[in-house]
Design a protein around this nucleic acid. Sequence first.
DNA 1: CCCCAAAGTAGGCAGCGCCAACAATGCTGT
DNA 2: ACAGCATTGTTGGCGCTGCCTACTTTGGGG
Lengths: 200, 200
Amino acid sequence: MLSMPASRPYHHGDLRAALLKSAERTLREKGVAALSLRELARDVGVSHAAPGRHFKDKQALLDALALTGYERLLRALGAADAPERPIQERMTRLARAYLGFVIDNPALLELMFARKHEPDTTGPLADAVEETFGSLTHLVADAQERGEIVPGDPERLMMVVASSLHGLAALVAACALSPEEALAGLDEQVHHLLYGVAPR
Amino acid sequence: MLSMPASRPYHHGDLRAALLKSAERTLREKGVAALSLRELARDVGVSHAAPGRHFKDKQALLDALALTGYERLLRALGAADAPERPIQERMTRLARAYLGFVIDNPALLELMFARKHEPDTTGPLADAVEETFGSLTHLVADAQERGEIVPGDPERLMMVVASSLHGLAALVAACALSPEEALAGLDEQVHHLLYGVAPR
DNA sequence: CCCCAAAGTAGGCAGCGCCAACAATGCTGT
DNA sequence: ACAGCATTGTTGGCGCTGCCTACTTTGGGG
């Protein structure tokens, strides 16, 4: 349904969602630096101060955007897992899903891991990060019970896994590694994560 | 030598270096978002357009800043390596040096891996990234010759190592992991990188 | 010694984020 | 039914920013 230009109602209906949607598009197409509240308002067809009713400041909008990113990422990771399969396949699926997410939304991932929530160890964003790590920890603990991963503090082992996965994703997001190379080396990457790079 | 306020010479002498130094300080203390060319000019005591003589635009200054970051990181990594020691110690030293760098310069690392040099596969910045990866590849190939790392494409194996190291660093820079936790788990991290997380 | 390129200055422009004051709207209680 | 009010959108303005152009100062090479 296209918006009719004539006699747009005074109240938008769901301006907040419209702003987030438009912002995500701009983020994907032109990067975070090109995001401006005023241009966003223009795109959506409201006055330049209207966004201020829904986001206390620009950072609040960026945070909301990052939050939707975590929700989508978490869904993608959840959908990719196959709990009954052996650990190597589960890891590979997870890694592929994460890599797919970052390839589709590189600027969004940059936002999600931006250094802006710094002292803020609370809030919905921190919860989202926590939940993402939590699901990974769960997977590690699960695999430990089956004897597929060495015993030890699951949190610590999760960090090893998370570092490896996120490192690859971050390098792709930073354009230090092409998506093709990353995908091509993914199976090997997971294998080395499980079995190491030292000779057995 | 303090600058004398009275009769400051018309020409600064080395404005470019002074700007970079002041910028790095601001970056460390207040983050990249707080960096403004005009404020920088004020801090250094020149007019608001003076920086434009040395940096074509703001991005050029950020790039120059990132470049100094790569130089320092490369030096730190080079100084940390101990080529005659066994691979686990070398890796641990490298990881510790990298982690130390990111703990000391989190905002700078963010800048170095910012998604701004996107289509730009050439230029001094890309060379710096290349060189950093190159030295890692060299270490991998070196260890392979000694039988400390499994055979295989050194580039691929380097990416495994780089992902793991950079992932940990990126998580610290993003405040998803505290420096203390990262340092505490570092030895274990390197061990798992070498020998895997699956039972032997 | 002069002259010109390099380096710094002054001013202005458009765009930005944020704020305060004002207007339209629709929900709620009586 | 409708008055009142909180919500949501509008207008205007402030100070800041990056960038541009034109002007001034300086110092070194022909």
